[in-house]
């Protein structure tokens, strides 16, 4: 069971502001997802390594060759606020 405090904690980490209604809904939705996952625990998984990936592929590597970067205007195009050739943001930690 994911309680209200846990939902608020996760929301805070994700910088989400939730209404009371949403908190209640998330609490029940997240709980049901966890319940579903918990079903797996009914199985004997003693000798099964955790699955981090669903494909059995390794070492997909890229050569260290450079590709053109974006022109700065293009990189900044969707920034809500621009200053000094950069993305202007509220100062963190204040």
């Amino acid at each position: 069971m994911i309680d209200r405090d846990q939902v608020l904690h996760v929301a805070r980490l994700a910088r989400l502001r939730l209404t009371d209604e949403e908190v209640a809904r998330m609490s029940s939705e997240l709980s049901s997802i966890l319940d579903h996952i918990e079903k797996i625990e009914e199985l004997d998984l003693q000798d099964v390594p955790p699955t981090s990936h669903v494909v059995q592929v390794e070492n997909v590597l890229r050569e260290d060759d450079s590709r053109p970067s974006l022109p700065r205007e293009r990189a900044l195009e969707q920034a809500p606020d621009v200053a000094d050739g950069g993305f202007r943001v509220p100062s963190p930690g204040t």
Binding site: A83, G85, F87, R88, P92
Partner: peptide
């Protein structure tokens, strides 16, 4: 941002 360059107190930063 701003010429102060201080870590704290500046109101905006540029990334």
């Amino acid at each position: 941002a701003g010429s102060s360059g201080r870590l704290h107190g500046a109101e905006a930063s540029v990334v």
